[in-house]
Amino acid sequence: MGKKSDTAKAFPYILPVLIVMILINVYPFVRGILNAFYADKVFGVGRHFCGFDNFKELFQDHIFWLGLKNNVIWTLSCVVVEVILGLFIAMLLNLPYIKFRNVHRTLVLLPWAIPPVVSALIWRYFFGTSGPINIILKGIGFSNPPSWLINPGYSLFACIVANIWVGLPFVTVMLLGGLQSLPGDVYEAAEIDGAGIVKKFFYITLPMMKDLILTVAVLTSIWTFNMFDIVFTMTRGGPGNSSILLSLYAYQNAFGYFQQGYAAAIGIISLIILMIPLIFYIKGRFNYED
């Protein structure tokens, strides 16, 4: 198939995507990027072009660096745990001898049925000083359980737990879908050769699932990196900025602090940071296709 005819053939298939994306993705995005070069000064001279001033100030803002650090911790912990736990649960639920397998498969997805704005409220309530978690901890003998959301050592951790809970069903269902499309005869052959569970996992499951796991991991990372609603509801980045995320800080600047330009600058920096895993991912994908 020649390249030119391929382009002509592909065009009608990708047209709907092009229309939607160009209209409500490219245009607002360009506008948003330009915003970063404007200072707002809402109570003074008003919005005006300021070159790279927002970026210069950003690099001197310690909350920015703190947010960046937290954002990396947040993204890595959420994604790593979600993928490992998700794969583990998916494999368990893929075992033929699990009783009520179908019921469990449905149950594991349930956290996804609750809108994240509500989940965040539930988790804030859960992690409360005398909330259900601490009541249970006291019941099983921990006399002085921590105040999760107001102890800087735990505040980010509590948010991570909540976000893993929110994100886990998605990862699990994706991986379960992948596991089910694996050809059974390879396993049968391996079993005939006497391969055990561990061997089968490392020599068959993992290599065959590699692309899907990578896709899920990269996309979840990007998604998690920009996600702030959980932290916004649970701690608002506190106490003392201990759980501030870059994405949350950008959001607060845009809507709470009257600093849209500053927020856009934070957005651009996040985007640049996210480009690093993206480029590796895209490169890897194209090499694989060749």
Binding site: Y125, G128, G131, S147, L149, I150, M234, T235, R236, G238
Partner: peptide, 12 residues
């Protein structure tokens, strides 16, 4: 007074 002053969780 406890450090709970920093909490934003009205419920607790």
């Amino acid at each position: 007074s406890p450090p709970d002053v920093m909490s934003i969780d009205y419920t607790s």
